[in-house]
Design a binder for these strands. Structure first.
Lengths: 226, 226
DNA sequence: AGATTAATGACAGCGACTGACAATTGACAA
DNA sequence: TTGTCAATTGTCAGTCGCTGTCATTAATCT
């Protein structure tokens, strides 16, 4: 059973996240000061920095959990799946579970707008990409473990992950520029991008056919989730 | 002919770059104060911020030029080259030219150590990745222009560039962790990574053969530069 | 209840960065 | 050459993110 002290800490932490995200998506990130956040939660500025190491940290508090879930999912994918498939299926199997745990702290509406804010605010985008570089390291070792491979001699895990997360970032960025800020739209956009990873490397782009458009009847991806 | 005023500006700008980079690579980025930089060049702090919008900006002043050169090179690649080939050949054809123009401002030794510093300093790495996101946009439109493609309907340029620069960042990061901080070593590492972009996407990784190791006798890349 | 330990608040201070205004200096014409 | 104009710079004050320090409060343990 959790003590009172622990519960209290969890509450102020959640309150800080909720208050800051709410302020961020309404007022803007740069326009929101730490003092404004702590005024809402009614704690001192010093306390804020005891919970979050920086202003950016509170902005990414929820993304942290989502990413961790994704890594775990990738590691637990059935071993017969190819590395590329495993990454992709881990993604689709993470969508719903992550959304629920987020919703406990912040309304889904705000969380989605927060996601967009990250892509449109220079300071946050920089932090986002720094974090995704760390994520790449984690994912690389996940793939290497799956395949029983040494990362120093075989560079393929690194390269695959670099491509994968590069494309995911690009897709996320594109999604943030559309009007449809739903989780569903984000899902569709990302999958559309991932489908093109192979074709984009082809020697000849047949300029006649246009990729990535039209109704998403392209079922080029086999979802082997149970 | 350039006026005295303009020359003077160029000189202080170069001096600021040289002084800051020298301090960065010796003392460290976070450990270097703007005041310490301006003390060396003997200008006021305010003047510094009139030349560079931020502390990070001066750290990336030289990378800016290199990246611009690369974009131009990509655009001017012969049209019979495939998009992926064009990117790759643009890279190899940029190496030397860029190095020369850099050397006019900062010794090559320091510039290479600066490159490593960027990869090892969190604040700089974040800035680097934010910049490379902007770079992706530029490159995407370059490829689209080359192929006569509309970026909104055909996503392949975006995806290709995302893969490409994702892998390049990964390679650059890896290189920064080695002892050999020469331009040659960086070149080799990056090309080794780029060679694996295709194979890493394959369904079956034949675990018997190890990719990315051994002597770089892998001539899987056709350099069609004149 | 009293001792222990953790969480918090208050305060002072550093460094990055900005706005405003005065002082300086190169450019250009009379 | 000199005087005017505009660009460049220095000074100063101030904001904001962030940290160290220390006293105070509040939860836990005995």
């Amino acid at each position: 059973m959790t003590g009172l002290r622990e519960r209290k800490k969890q509450r102020t932490r959640d309150a800080l996240i909720r208050a800051s995200h709410e302020l961020f998506v309404t007022r803007g990130y740069d326009e929101t000061t730490i003092d404004e956040i702590t005024d809402v939660v009614d704690v001192s500025q010093r306390t804020f920095f005891r919970y979050f190491s920086s202003k950016e940290a509170v902005a990414f508090a929820l993304q942290d959990e989502v990413e961790t879930r994704f890594c775990v999912a990738a590691l637990n994918r059935p071993s017969q799946e190819s590395p590329a498939q495993a990454l992709r299926n881990a993604l689709t199997s993470t969508w719903t579970g992550a959304a629920e745990s987020v919703h406990k702290v912040v309304p889904m509406n705000i969380h989605m707008r927060m996601w967009r804010l990250i892509e449109t605010t220079p300071a946050l985008l920089a932090a986002h990409m720094w974090r995704s570089a760390e994520m790449e390291d984690r994912l690389t070792s996940v793939i290497a473990t799956r395949e029983g491979i040494d990362t120093t001699t075989d560079l393929r895990p690194r390269v695959l992950v670099a491509q994968f997360s590069g494309v995911m970032r690009s897709a996320g960025r594109q999604w943030a520029m559309t009007e449809d800020i739903t989780l569903r739209a984000m899902k569709i956009t990302i999958e559309k991008y991932l489908d093109l990873m192979g074709p984009a490397l082809d020697e000849n782009w047949s300029n006649g056919e246009s990729h990535g458009d039209g109704p998403s009847d392209t079922q080029s991806h086999s979802d082997t989730r149970q």
